[in-house]
Write a protein that binds this DNA or RNA. Structure first.
Lengths: 176, 176
DNA sequence: ACGCGGTAATTGAGCCCTCAATCAGGGGTA
DNA sequence: TACCCCTGATTGAGGGCTCAATTACCGCGT
């Protein structure tokens, strides 16, 4: 471990700006959705994932994996979405442990209502601020970050406990 | 309002990758800090801000503004940090409404302990994944996003209620 | 058939955040 | 001085998250 690899002044500046930009952007979109449509961003993403699925339904664990979320989180989220009448649970006939989360018509309507404002907010706060070139760069940068992070998360934490070395991931399919 | 300005397929992909990358990165760093040092990332940032201030102390509102955080949030945060013995409140003699948040020696020590692991995590998950060119691009992109977001947040929300137009901000000093 | 480890999903406690309400003190004006 | 509005900071309720524990079920091996 010896001396840690501290950040240079330039890196420091990039990191602080990026960190704050990401946080503020997230907070901004969160606020817009919460204010205009009464749902947090993660719930919006759940509705989007369901709306794009065959039959507008997904197994709980598929949904969790699709959104990179924990099962517990989804369980709580779907419980609340069910309370709003936007999602309905159906038990799975072939695997009695399993459950489907099904987007209701009301849920689809809520999504249709929320989408324009959300998209406009993303455009205003992100793409309108960037040149097309920068948007492209941001895509590549994001992929690079994702490549290092996505599959590790689950594996690394367990391994880290045992002090094991976690091999870096070389390549990854694009997200759906 | 007419038809919303939907995202193109390319923009959609960039947005989803960026959104997920930012979320995963944040979760990753949060987990690392929480696991290794028993503090959430926002508390780490509070300690950093205090450690860099004159006399390792800041007024609550200065601290809130420095971290782009709400006063309420800081109040809760400092209350908890005080419970850990990392920060101490002192009442302000010149303005009896005011309060200082003061970094204790224990707090400074906790920060010194936490820093290497955190910096290493930032380096591994961010800078090690990017070329120097990309890091530079990310800095510019972040500044652009910040420029559009930072001063609006507070103002825009109030104005939006009244349907007022909020002028875009042209320029901004670099963050400290 | 029985048992057993693994998997799908839920639950509850505890933590952090937001929002709205509140308290206390400053600072101008009549 | 008395009044009033503004500002600094705290508080409590409610929501979303994580983590650990739990329930219910699958499917394999004997």
């Amino acid at each position: 471990m010896s001396e840690p690899r501290w950040l240079s002044d330039d890196e420091q500046r990039v990191w602080r700006d990026f960190s704050q930009a990401a946080a503020l952007l997230q907070a901004h979109l969160e606020g817009q959705l919460q204010h205009d449509s009464g749902m947090p961003h993660t719930y919006y993403e759940v509705l989007v994932a369901l709306s794009e699925a065959d039959g507008r339904r997904l197994r709980m664990s598929e949904l969790a994996e699709a959104r990179g979320s924990s099962r517990s989180r989804l369980s709580h989220a779907v419980a609340r979405l069910e309370g709003k009448g936007w999602v309905r649970r159906e038990s799975c006939p072939t695997d009695k442990r399993g459950a489907w989360a099904v987007l209701t018509d009301a849920g689809f309507a809520a999504l249709e209502t929320a989408a324009p404002g959300h998209v406009e907010a993303v455009r205003e706060s992100l793409f309108d601020r960037l040149t097309p070139k920068q948007a492209e760069q941001l895509g590549e940068i994001s992929s690079a970050i994702l490549g290092g992070l996505r599959p590790q998360c689950a594996a690394a934490i367990a391994a880290e406990e045992a002090g094991e070395f976690v091999a870096p991931v070389v390549e990854l399919p694009k997200s759906g």
